Simulated scan of single mutants.
Amino acid sequence: MKKIINSPAAPAPIGPYNHSVMVGDLLFISGQIPFNQAKEILITSGIEDETKQVMTNLEAILNEAGMTFENVVKSTIFLINMDNFSTINEIYGQHFNKETAPARECVQVAKLPRNVNIEISMIAAKKG
Rank of each mutant, 00 (worst) to 15 (best):
G93S: 04
F28W: 11
P8Y: 09
V21G: 01
E70T: 05
V73P: 08
K127P: 00
E119Y: 00
L112D: 06
P8T: 09
I77C: 12
I61W: 04
E99T: 10
N18D: 14
I43F: 10
I29L: 11
G46C: 06
A9K: 14
E59V: 04
S20C: 10
L26T: 08
S7E: 06
C106R: 09
N63W: 01
S86I: 09
E70S: 14
N89Y: 00
T100E: 02
T51A: 11
K52N: 00
E48G: 10
T56M: 14
M67H: 04
N117T: 09
K98V: 02
A10N: 08
T87G: 05
L62V: 03
M67R: 07
S30W: 03
S75P: 01
A110D: 13
T87Q: 12
M82P: 00
I61K: 09
Q37G: 03
L42D: 01
K2V: 11
E99K: 15
I14M: 15
K98G: 05
I91K: 03
N84C: 10
H19Q: 09
L112G: 04
E99D: 15
E90V: 00
A110S: 15
K127R: 12
H19R: 05
T51W: 02
T100D: 01
D83M: 10
K3T: 03
M82Q: 09
I47R: 07
I77A: 11
L79W: 06
G31E: 08
P34S: 08
C106Q: 10
V116G: 00
C106H: 07
T76C: 13
V109C: 14
I77V: 15
Q32G: 06
P11S: 01
N63F: 02
S20G: 13
N36M: 10
Q94D: 12
A9F: 12
M67L: 15
N89P: 00
G24V: 01
V116D: 03
N97Q: 09
R114E: 15
K74Q: 04
D25V: 02
T56L: 15
I123P: 04
Y92M: 06
L26Y: 11
G24M: 06
S20R: 09
I5C: 08
L42A: 02
V21S: 04
H19D: 13
H95M: 01
P13A: 04
I88E: 03
P113M: 08
K39A: 15
V116I: 06
P34H: 06
N6I: 03
I33K: 12
E119K: 08
E119I: 01
D25N: 13
E59T: 10
E50A: 09
V21E: 11
L27Y: 04
M22E: 01
A38R: 13
I14T: 13
I33V: 13
F96I: 01
Q53N: 07
H95K: 10
S7H: 02
I123M: 15
N117E: 15
E48H: 12
L26I: 09
E105L: 13
V72D: 02
I61T: 09
N84F: 11
M55Q: 03
N36W: 09
T44F: 06
S30I: 03
I123A: 11
C106S: 14
E70N: 14
E40T: 10
V116K: 05
E64T: 13
P113I: 07
Y17P: 08
I5W: 07
P16S: 15
P102A: 00
G128A: 11
H19M: 06
